[in-house]
Simulated assay, not measured.
Amino acid sequence: MATRAYERYGVPIPPENPKQEFMTVQETAYVLKCSVSWLRRFLRKNPCLCGRNGNRGRIVTDREQRTAIHAARSAGDPRTGRAMPRQRRRPAAKPALASR
């Protein structure tokens, strides 16, 4: 069961206007079609791609920052240079030994 905090802050929500200048993390996640938790982790690693608003420090993004987030996300897996991370495979089952 989801907590009230998750229902309030962890679910992407559609913005009133998708072309508005500033958006919250939840609205940005909805527009970029990603999860809020992924976006928060990404912005923690790249603090230059977001801003803070007000005394409580609400995270907001503007148009240029959303474009940069989308470009970084579309670039692929930075660890290996692949377009997409490789799917993990289950190890092949060993053939059963014939009984002698």
Rank of each mutant, 00 (worst) to 15 (best):
C50Q: 07
L49R: 06
R63G: 04
A5N: 11
K19H: 12
R58F: 10
Q87R: 14
T80L: 10
Q65D: 12
P47Q: 12
I69M: 10
S35T: 14
G76Y: 11
D62E: 07
P14H: 01
F42G: 02
Q26A: 08
Q26D: 10
P18Y: 00
G54K: 06
W38T: 06
A71E: 14
I59L: 11
L43T: 07
G81Y: 13
V25G: 08
C48W: 14
R58A: 11
K45V: 05
E16H: 06
I69N: 06
Q26T: 06
A71I: 04
L43G: 07
D77S: 02
E21D: 13
T3L: 10
T67F: 07
P47V: 11
G57W: 01
M1G: 15
A96E: 04
Y30G: 01
L39K: 03
A68D: 14
R66G: 03
R8W: 00
T3F: 15
L49V: 09
G57M: 04
D77H: 04
P78G: 11
V60T: 07
R73N: 13
N55S: 14
R73H: 12
A96C: 05
V11E: 05
R66I: 02
G81F: 12
R4S: 12
G10H: 03
R41C: 03
S74F: 07
K33S: 15
P15A: 04
R86P: 01
V11S: 02
R73V: 14
R4H: 14
C48K: 14
K45G: 04
A29H: 00
M84G: 01
G51P: 00
A72F: 03
R82T: 12
P18N: 03
A92M: 10
R63M: 06
V11G: 03
R41Q: 10
E7R: 08
M23G: 00
I13G: 00
R58N: 11
L49Q: 09
